[in-house]
Amino acid sequence: MYNTIQIKAGEGGWGGPLTITPTEKCHTVLCVTGGGIHPVAQKIADLTGGVAVDGWKTTLPDDEVMIAVVDCGGTARCGVYPKKKIFTVNLMPVGQSGPLAMFIKPEIYVSAVREKDITVVGEEAAAAAAAPAQAQQAPANDGFKTKEQAKEEIRQANEGKKQSIVVTIGKGVGEVVSKFFQAGRESIDMVIRNILPFMAFTSTLLGIISASGLGDIIANTISPLCGTLPGMLVISLICSLPFLSPILGPGAVIAQVVGTLLGAQFAAGAIPAQYALPALFAIDGQVGADFVPVGLSLGEAEPETIELGVPAVLFSRIVTGPVAVIIAFVFSIGLF
């Protein structure tokens, strides 16, 4: 009797959810986690009705492997099994990485999996819950080794291994190091995907403005108007207008471009430095105004809440936009 299970990504994980149904031929959970059967592999085997084997001790043909459980920090193993088209569960929070990254796809790979991320799917869930209760009575009745007893032995064998201090420390250090490494990878990824393209775009724009002489015109005409408290208030009011703010909002591109242009004016001395703080709020009265419905649904708000929540946020900005500039103006006293 086999069950279909679903495995979803755990905290900080990537990929999935995977839905897996064992067959007569293909029902083995291959555990390649540095010795012994990992509890996650054991749970997959228990819930599906398959068997878990230790990949360090046993080898078997690929077409008999239902799923591979690995604890790969992001180089080799996490890509090997997806490349073979075998479902892969990684215990580490690793996404598409390593030399085989192109084979790691959410349909075949899921990471940061813990025992609680594995669930039985559909009607069979009830049957699976009932099964252990029957099974516990069974061993008392006959002298043969049942499947449950066999599993118990595996578990005991594993427990013996867990006590090794060296292994525990090694795994702990490995986990911390892999988290640091992952954090570095994410940071570089963020720089390449988001920060550098924006720098390329704005520096080109800034270069054209300054080299063409347009910058001097701005510095002589618009900047003196903006570099006063009333000027800042007018900018923030315009940014906060409910019919304009959703248009000005997306990706904060306009706020960033205006921020950079103002930065050039601060550098040139066209706007006094003490206006930097109010300026930061003046150009940002529209922040997130384009994103209200999406942001609210991320917070699992009801459709009725979103309907009235959007105007509530937009109207509130007309007041809080300029108020923010005034607070910032007061707080910049004594700065520079």
Binding site: A255, A273, L280
Partner: peptide
Amino acid sequence: NPGELFVWMGIAQGLQERGLSTAGLAIRY
């Protein structure tokens, strides 16, 4: 929010070019 750094960074860079420290401004911001 690394994708939207330049709201802050745009203005902060301008001040740095003038030789001003932006640490105090960052805390007040």
